[in-house]
Simulated assay, not measured.
Amino acid sequence: MADTGRVRGTPHEIALLAGGPRAAVTVAVVALHLRGAVEAGAPGTVRAVDGEAGRALPPLPAPGSEPGALTGAMRAAYLESAVYHRLAEPSAIRELVRDLDIRWAVAELRVGLAEAGMLRYPLLGSTRAARRRLQVLRKAFPLPASRRDLPDDERLLAVALHGETALRVLVPRFALRAGLTERVSLRHRRLLRHSPRGDAYGSAGHLSCGGGSGGGCGGGGPD
């Protein structure tokens, strides 16, 4: 296995590089689900679960305040917190991506990636280093064949790297009920099975974004 310690970030950051804000928000939703903080609501929606996992999330900084120096893990926690509190009202994934607090949290993820040389100013396109990071990680962490005995952090990394294909393998029922994946015909399943695995989000590793505010672009376990 390749040495990925130097290039590996949080699954939220990796998903943002691979597929943009929706991918990062999807990873946050799955992370919360694996800890029992959210569940599928009405078809195509997700809702928060009142419990210890949700209460353990950090509060978001007050509007206009400076959050100070943040690590990637802290930025990921802010994104999960923003998603969790938005889901006090059941919402679809497309609604989450448009939420102002979630947009702020995604923008903070971008700041960290830009500081690490993964995104270019001013348009925040992915750099050669970012594309190389994704290539190395996809080679080192191919799509798991099964969710059996797979730790939650490896599930999240797989979702970040392999997108919907990983969701169908690792959290199939939750992903379908929550609207993270769509129902596919038997013929479409055959096509997916034989399709090449590369950028699971169909973006060739580029980050497509709608502005600096973080706008919309582009076994075991609770499943």
Rank of each mutant, 00 (worst) to 15 (best):
G54D: 04
G54A: 04
G54V: 06
G54H: 06
R55E: 14
R55F: 07
A56F: 00
L57W: 11
L57T: 08
L57E: 08
P59V: 12
L60W: 02
P61N: 09
P61F: 05
P63S: 07
S65Y: 07
S65H: 11
E66A: 13
P67H: 04
G68C: 09
A69C: 00
L70P: 02
T71V: 07
G72P: 13
G72N: 07
R75A: 15
R75D: 09
A77R: 14
Y78G: 02
E80K: 14
E80P: 00
S81E: 12
A82E: 08
A82L: 05
A82T: 07
V83F: 08
R86T: 15
P90D: 07
S91W: 02
S91P: 00
S91Q: 13
I93D: 04
R94V: 15
R94W: 11
L96T: 12
V97E: 15
R98S: 11
R98Y: 05
D99C: 02
D99N: 14
D101Q: 14
I102K: 03
R103Q: 15
R103T: 06
W104E: 09
A105N: 09
A105P: 11
V106C: 04
V106P: 05
E108H: 08
L109N: 03
L109Q: 10
R110P: 00
V111C: 00
V111S: 08
G112V: 12
G112R: 11
L113C: 02
L113A: 01
A114C: 06
A114G: 10
E115Q: 15
E115A: 15
E115P: 00
A116Q: 12
A116Y: 03
L119R: 04
L119I: 05
R120V: 01
Y121W: 12
Y121V: 10
Y121H: 13
Y121T: 14
Y121I: 06
P122W: 07
L123G: 03
L123V: 13
L124A: 09
G125M: 03
G125H: 11
G125R: 13
G125W: 04
S126G: 09
S126P: 06
S126L: 02
T127W: 02
T127S: 14
R128W: 08
R128P: 04
R128Y: 01
A129I: 05
A129F: 01
A129G: 06
A130F: 00
A130E: 01
A130M: 02
R131S: 03
R131T: 01
R132D: 13
R132H: 13
R132I: 08
R132W: 11
R133V: 06
Q135R: 15
L137A: 03
L137Y: 05
R138F: 04
K139Y: 06
K139M: 01
K139W: 02
A140S: 14
F141P: 00
P142K: 05
L143R: 10
A145T: 12
A145C: 00
A145D: 14
S146C: 03
S146T: 15
R147V: 05
P151M: 11
P151D: 13
P151F: 05
P151Q: 12
